[in-house]
Design a protein around this nucleic acid. Structure first.
Length: 124
DNA sequence: GGAGAGGCTTACT
DNA sequence: AAGTAAGCCTCTC
């Protein structure tokens, strides 16, 4: 394979796209999970997500990717966060006002959640 | 070429 | 329990 300018990013992006595309409907995963699966850092996954192209954002179920606490990233643009929440709810999942996914059983790969998710601390 | 930032995560205070 | 600090790697200016 030739070596593009951003070889690392290209590879990571491809991996992220591939993994995210594999997430079944009605399920979700975390940046950390994807990162672990592709042996990269969670930040890279998040970065790839933020730098997705129109085609990718339209094709990939990026909304099924949330932070380690199983909630929508608060740092994300309100518009995107709202879109993400809407899409998840459209798939039959319950998201509260804080953006926490209340369907813990919908977690695709629980790899990223090593720490106890504060399901009880969900701010309503 | 160096410095700052980025949709995170873990660990410690 | 909540908040703060550091860490990792890549991108953009």
């Amino acid at each position: 394979m030739p070596k593009p300018k951003s070889a690392a990013f290209a590879r990571i992006r491809a991996e992220v796209i591939r993994l995210v595309a594999l997430i079944p409907e009605g399920k979700f995963t975390t940046y950390g999970s994807i990162a672990v699966h592709m042996n990269v850092m969670a930040r890279h996954v998040a970065f790839v997500m933020s730098r997705l192209t129109e085609e990718e954002s339209a094709t990939l179920p990026w909304h099924r990717v949330v932070s380690a606490d199983a909630r929508i990233s608060p740092k994300m643009d309100p518009l995107l966060a709202e879109t993400q929440r809407a899409r998840l709810e459209a798939e039959g999942m319950s998201i509260n006002a804080a953006g926490f996914i209340q369907c813990d059983e919908a977690h695709f790969h629980s790899v990223g959640v090593r720490r106890s998710i504060r399901w009880s601390q969900q701010p309503d």
